[in-house]
Amino acid sequence: MELIELFLASILSNNIALIFILGMCSLIAVSTSIKNAVNMGVAVTVVTTITAIINWPIYELLKATGTTQLSLLVFIIVIAAFVQFLEMFLAKFAPKIYDAFGIFLPLITVNCIVLAVSLFFQTRNYDFAQTFVFSFGSGIGWMLAIVLLAGVRQKMYRVSNIPRGLRGRAIAFLILGILALAFIGFTGIGSVS
């Protein structure tokens, strides 16, 4: 039951984008269409989950050797290397998927939620199962946030006459603020810490 609560909390009450306000650059930039949002969300979920799974045993090794101060550097290297490997793998073996991701795949390297998830499991002392569930749930939560934002933006541009000063990123920030307020309502459900 604890893992289910952790999974739901990482999507809703502790949504990495809407509660912790992480990953805003790519959230704002890529949420111009639902297709882009879904592609980016899937890529972020895959990379976040796999890099956390790779980083957990590395952190345990660093902990055993007393060199945990290196964890930030090691996490960044693992994330960059994995994204590069994934990009090369998709380009060679799944060119259609590679073309569909386009520029979104390299953008994940600089998405702060990928690093934040690894730092969260470290500071919260999660075991392997908790790390997997939390990282996957955080990726799903970020994908939920970007798809919701893209859907609202698309609908608003179709049916509303948005004032010129609020078009583009300004309206995206307003929408994110309203979504964040809505997600704060989930905080009574449970806590991750």
Rank of each mutant, 00 (worst) to 15 (best):
Q69K: 14
S160K: 12
G139V: 06
F183H: 10
Q154I: 02
V74A: 14
I16K: 02
E87A: 14
R158S: 12
V46N: 05
L149P: 01
V152I: 15
F104E: 06
I162E: 02
N39E: 05
F121L: 11
R169Y: 10
L6K: 11
R124S: 10
V147M: 05
V74I: 15
V114I: 14
V38R: 02
R158Y: 09
E60D: 14
L181R: 07
V46D: 10
W142S: 04
A37W: 04
Y126E: 05
L73R: 12
L72Q: 14
L179W: 07
M24E: 14
T45N: 02
F101D: 07
G151L: 05
A170H: 12
N14F: 15
T187C: 05
F7R: 01
V38G: 00
V147I: 13
S10D: 12
I54N: 05
R153L: 09
G139E: 07
N36H: 02
I189V: 14
G66N: 15
T51D: 03
V117Y: 07
G177L: 12
M40C: 13
V83Q: 03
A52M: 05
W56A: 02
Q84F: 09
I16P: 03
K63Q: 12
T68M: 13
S33Y: 02
F82L: 03
L107I: 08
I162V: 09
G185T: 00
G177S: 12
I58K: 06
F82A: 02
I76D: 08
G188N: 15
F136H: 01
A81E: 06
S13I: 06
S193Q: 11
G185F: 02
P106Q: 07
V30F: 02
A37C: 07
A170Y: 10
L105E: 00
I19C: 09
N36F: 01
T187H: 06
F85V: 04
Y59C: 09
V159S: 11
T109K: 05
F104M: 14
L179I: 13
I113C: 00
Y98N: 15
M40A: 14
I108P: 05
F20Y: 06
T51N: 03
D99I: 04
A91P: 00
L115P: 04
L12K: 04
I113Y: 00
L144Y: 14
N125H: 11
S26Q: 12
Q122R: 15
S31Y: 03
V44Y: 08
L72H: 13
F20L: 04
A150M: 00
I19K: 14
A43Q: 07
Q122C: 09
N111K: 07
G168V: 00
G66S: 13
I103T: 14
T48I: 00
A150D: 00
L70P: 01
L18D: 06
D127S: 08
T131G: 11
P163H: 12
L144H: 11
V46G: 09
